[in-house]
Lab assay of single mutants.
Amino acid sequence: EPLWIRPDAPSRCTWQLGRPASESPHHHTAPAKSPKILPDILKKIGDTPMVRINKIGKKFGLKCELLAKCEFFNAGGSVKDRISLRMIEDAERDGTLKPGDTIIEPTSGNTGIGLALAAAVRGYRCIIVMPEKMSSEKVDVLRALGAEIVRTPTNARFDSPESHVGVAWRLKNEIPNSHILDQYRNASNPLAHYDTTADEILQQCDGKLDMLVASVGTGGTITGIARKLKEKCPGCRIIGVDPEGSILAEPEELNQTEQTTYEVEGIGYDFIPTVLDRTVVDKWFKSNDEEAFTFARMLIAQEGLLCGGSAGSTVAVAVKAAQELQEGQRCVVILPDSVRNYMTKFLSDRWMLQKGFLKEEDLTEKKPWWWHLRVQELGLSAPLTVLPTITCGHTIEILREKGFDQAPVVDEAGVILGMVTLGNMLSSLLAGKVQPSDQVGKVIYKQFKQIRLTDTLGRLSHILEMDHFALVVHEQIQYHSTGKSSQRQMVFGVVTAIDLLNFVAAQERDQK
């Protein structure tokens, strides 16, 4: 057995438009009618409502009807409940999964919650491996369901041993009777949507819809739904939504950006999952974080739909894509998950301010006199920076000697690579993860907040409520011999709460 199987392995699926269902090699399930009293909570997966979006479509000038398939009504709160249950049931049916076995899954959280929910009911041990950027709410729900959680670096490539995929496979090879159901490759993922989600949409719309818009992560949702719609409703256009920084969209030119990270969760990847059939997507749109969270908040405030950030991405694209539809036509959007997962993220004004998705003037509360002053007023001194090749031991000596707790790590040209902190280095040394002679590049981390000289002290204040420091950066445009230009970030300084307090105190003292 291989040590790991690539999540982007070539698909062996034989589905073709027009091929009889009787030739399918898979076990198919028909939607079942729910009894009045459910035998367990797993029976509350599927049969989610279709809700008309009344205000947002009109606000953006849509002539067509805009409908939302509300997947956050599933038992675990997301569309991923469907595939989690289906993968477990299919693994039980073919004898792969037996009582007492362990389920391991690399996930952005929602599939993990679905699997942990099913594992709690069915009696399996469950280990979820997820990147650090995923919300604390997801972690809390997983723990409450009895799952064990392993976190991995957000910026690790999918084929790196440190990625959530790599760590999951390492655990599988170490733990007896453990299984990775593997949402990236498992046919049960798109089949769950082909058999149930798509049929529900067709039934709820009486077979009449002209466009379907869905955000894409593993691709199982859009693949399964689109294949069924292509068979039953061939005139329906399928629109895929991919965040900026991901590479799922086609044509490839759409993916060209210097951005590699994004805040919206559960969609987009740096590889093409095996289950994603991009041939059934008629057109791709890219979405960005700001519009995703703005539209998610709009869905909550104006439509009462308590959905997550990827739902915002989907609707932001839908109001663009559906401009081509006329009166009497219908566009369906998939709202994948609930706001429950993001209470401390985009639902929080403070978080939105820190990330730059909300401006101070958007909030009406009274601010102190210094709130709208610029960061450049602080008069920061030149920063202490270190090269990635310097040793951890030497870096600790320098920081202690100069009285700093942290320093930016830059390359020879001064471009920011990340940050090192005294606390992080000492804990890594004590844990045996690094040696004093190791290069400081081994303990770089990139989960820090950046701020510009033109940003306000109010925004800085919000950042420092949650973080010990902020890195002050400025952009530099560099022209190359080819005539092309590129933008790079340079370090201007490091600012802490002490710097802000000293500035405010000094100004008030001078005024007296």
Rank of each mutant, 00 (worst) to 15 (best):
S437Y: 10
F469T: 06
T395I: 09
L399P: 01
W284N: 01
P368L: 14
P251R: 15
E412L: 11
E265V: 01
I451R: 09
K442S: 07
P436W: 09
G483D: 14
T456P: 15
F469W: 10
R374C: 10
L460G: 04
K433P: 06
E465M: 04
G308F: 01
T421L: 11
Y479P: 05
E377K: 14
S481N: 10
I451A: 01
L335P: 01
K320M: 11
H474K: 05
D499G: 01
V319D: 05
A292R: 04
A322G: 07
D411E: 07
F503G: 01
L335C: 14
E360L: 10
D270N: 01
L453R: 12
L378S: 07
P383R: 06
P336L: 06
G309I: 06
A292C: 09
T395L: 09
S437T: 04
A301N: 11
L353S: 08
D455W: 08
G493H: 11
S313A: 10
S287N: 08
T496S: 12
S481E: 14
D455C: 13
S486W: 08
E412V: 10
G304F: 01
A292Y: 01
V443F: 14
Y262W: 06
F469C: 12
M352P: 05
I396G: 09
C392G: 07
P251L: 09
S427E: 01
N341V: 01
E303H: 11
A470C: 01
R350E: 06
E250F: 07
T389S: 08
L457V: 09
T395K: 09
R374T: 09
S485I: 15
D499L: 01
V494G: 04
G441M: 09
V280D: 11
L429A: 01
V415F: 12
P388D: 01
V319F: 14
K446T: 15
R278A: 05
S428M: 05
F285C: 07
V315F: 09
Q376L: 14
S427F: 09
V472D: 01
T389V: 13
E303V: 09
I451G: 08
V415A: 09
G441Y: 14
G308Y: 03
P251Y: 06
K446H: 13
I272N: 04
T391A: 08
K512E: 13
E265C: 01
R278G: 07
T261V: 07
E475F: 08
S427G: 13
A292P: 03
L422C: 12
V319L: 10
M490L: 11
V440S: 13
T364V: 01
D282S: 12
C331H: 01
S427V: 07
F469D: 05
E265P: 01
I416G: 10
L347T: 01
Q447L: 11
N424S: 01
T314C: 05
V415Y: 12
S338P: 12
K367D: 01
A292N: 01
R452L: 12
L373I: 10
C331L: 09
L358F: 10
R278D: 01
R459K: 13
G393F: 12
C331F: 01
G493M: 01
L426S: 13
G356I: 13
L387R: 12
E360P: 04
Q487M: 12
P336I: 08
L453S: 05
L471G: 15
E360M: 09
G493I: 10
D411N: 09
F448D: 03
F293V: 05
Q489S: 14
E465I: 01
R340H: 05
A506G: 13
F285Y: 13
M490A: 12
L457E: 01
T364W: 14
D282L: 07
V410E: 13
E360A: 14
E412S: 10
A296C: 08
A407W: 01
I247C: 04
Q259C: 08
F404S: 07
L417I: 14
L363E: 01
L373P: 10
E290G: 13
S427A: 09
Y445S: 10
E475I: 10
T421W: 04
F346P: 01
L347I: 12
G309S: 05
F503M: 14
F285V: 15
I390R: 04
F448V: 12
H372K: 01
L276F: 07
V473K: 07
N341A: 01
F346Y: 06
S437P: 05
K283W: 10
L429Y: 09
F448M: 06
T389D: 14
V264H: 04
T294M: 01
K366H: 06
S313W: 01
I444A: 11
